[in-house]
Design a protein around this nucleic acid. Structure first.
Length: 219
DNA sequence: GCGACAG
DNA sequence: ATCTTGTCGC
């Protein structure tokens, strides 16, 4: 459990973020093709009820190896930029219940593509020590051109003059996704993995599986 | 001052 | 995130 000293105010969360952001390691030491990939997502109900889900897939065949869910009450309000403080408690709980240590975490949100360069994927990576990256469905910070229509095409996502991520087309002619490094993996590698995890749909299979599982767990 | 603002 | 009908297309 992580209910003890978890920040519950904006000011406290900003302080924690400021302290942890320095622990992000940009050195990529994730295997080019890790044996497994672990996806995470959270679903909510109208009463601040939360269902967190983690699903580990075999990278080669994208078959489910292991999955866990955790139900809880939200302990932090939704605040752009402090998203992790709302979703992390149940996600960390679920991760701890896995029998096998994840090789890489695929987050539903951003990593470095964050106003203070410390989105959910960075936070999750630092706290678990595992390689992690984010795949967001919409832009949070930065600007970019429209990537070419072919699957695999990408353009840089730039914020305040810094390349913080990539806008990647995972399917021909379909709205692209926002990929950013989180911890111990670089952007190019995160993009290659994202493409490998999205052979048929816009979102990586890890995210689709975790999304499905979290919704089921909420009922 | 006026928007924008991951899920 | 979640609330929601029909509709176009494979």
């Amino acid at each position: 459990m992580h209910t003890g000293d978890w920040p519950t105010t904006i000011a406290a969360a900003l302080a924690v973020q400021e302290r942890l952001r320095g622990l992000v390691d940009v050195t990529d030491d994730c295997p080019e093709l890790p044996p497994t990939v672990t996806g995470l997502d959270v679903a909510y109900d109208a009463a601040d009820g939360i269902a967190a889900a983690v699903v580990t897939l075999e990278t080669a065949g994208l078959t489910v190896v292991e999955e866990r869910t955790v139900r809880a009450k939200a302990v932090f309000p939704y605040e752009p930029g402090l998203f992790a403080f709302r979703e992390l408690p149940p996600l960390l709980d679920a991760l701890e219940r896995l029998d096998h240590e994840p090789d890489v975490l695929v987050c539903d949100g951003h990593g470095l593509a964050h106003p203070r360069r410390f989105g959910l994927a960075c936070h999750l990576g630092v706290l678990t020590g595992r390689p992690a990256f984010g795949v967001g469905k919409t832009r949070f910070v930065g600007s970019h051109e429209d990537p070419p229509a072919a699957r695999g095409s990408s353009v840089p996502l730039v914020d305040a003059g810094e390349e913080v991520g990539a806008v990647l087309r995972t399917q021909d002619g379909v709205k692209p996704v926002y990929v950013s490094a989180g911890h111990r993996i670089d952007l190019a590698h995160a993009c290659r993995l994202t493409l490998a995890l999205a052979p048929r749909y816009r979102l990586p299979e890890t995210t689709r599986q975790a999304d499905r599982l979290s919704r089921v767990a909420l009922r």
